[in-house]
């Protein structure tokens, strides 16, 4: 590990330790009521308890399952549509106003309608995630295709490539950095929208776990839930970046730059 890297990690660790200490102090000194802010060790014990009796695992499995379904569906819709737009200006002009309109509506604002249409079951949760994930993926891909260097396309034409091969061998890889950024943003947005949806109407999942604990006045469970949500989000993002670094080494540098 290089020295600047080490220094960066030391700094981050210091901030975390200071935050944890402040939390502990605020709670232990009685500055904040332990009912509103339980001690760190209480939260840790509750977390362990929830893990041991399988409650946490069940809620995580439900939430992650919904994310996987909604995210995959959004990818399957957004990427082909973006390429269709990229190669056909007519299609783009026809559909652009509708999509621009839909983009302005936050996914959670669509929830009442989705509940009426799809009920309060899995379909509605997955629907919310699809709505939240679609635009980051779609716009990322569209932007990437639009930014493809025409000079590289010329190289393909000089080599005698057909339109389809130019798309597959030049435009797609050139658009990949933007696509990847869209995929990363979409994952975060989807995760947020899901927890939101689970807060409103659900019988399982991390959002439900939090809101249920709130009604039972179990602040410790609420905090455990928040930590798990944040940690899973970080893990997913880390996973996506690792995947990119392994499958597309030339993107390593650029995805690092976009990791802000």
């Amino acid at each position: 590990m290089t020295t600047p890297g080490l220094r960066r990690h030391t700094g981050a660790a210091c901030v975390l330790i200071v935050l944890a200490a402040a939390w502990w102090l605020a709670s232990a000194s009685g500055l904040v009521s332990p009912f509103l802010l339980p001690l760190p060790q209480t939260v840790l014990a509750t977390g362990w308890e929830l893990l041991a009796d399988g409650t946490l695992g069940m809620h995580v499995a439900v939430s992650v399952g919904r994310i996987l379904a909604g995210y995959s569906l959004a990818v399957a819709l957004a990427l082909p549509l973006a390429f269709l737009f990229g190669i056909s200006p007519a299609v783009r002009q026809a559909f652009e106003p509708v999509l621009e309109f839909l983009r302005q509506v936050p996914p959670l604002a669509m929830m009442p309608l989705l509940i009426l249409w799809l009920g309060i079951g899995e379909a509605q949760k997955v629907g919310i995630i699809v709505l939240a994930c679609f635009f980051p993926i779609f716009l990322g891909a569209l932007g990437g295709i639009a930014q493809c260097d025409p000079k590289l396309v010329e190289v393909g034409r000089v080599c005698g490539l057909r339109q389809w091969d130019i798309l597959r061998r030049i435009v797609l890889p050139a658009a990949l950095p933007s696509i990847v950024i869209g995929l990363r943003i979409a994952l975060g947005q989807g995760w947020r929208a899901l927890v939101g949806a689970e807060l409103v109407a659900s019988a399982a999942g991390l959002g439900y776990m939090i809101v249920d604990a709130e009604q039972l006045a179990r602040t410790d469970i609420v905090i455990v839930g928040i930590f798990v949500i944040g940690t899973l989000g970080l893990l997913a993002d880390f996973g996506v970046r690792r995947l990119i670094a392994r499958t597309a080494p030339w993107l390593r540098q650029r995805t690092e730059l976009t990791h802000a």
Partner: peptide
């Protein structure tokens, strides 16, 4: 059969 060398190298970064 044509081979072309451009002003910029125009390499595919991937």
């Amino acid at each position: 059969k044509v081979g072309c060398v451009f002003q910029e190298p125009r390499l595919m970064p991937w």
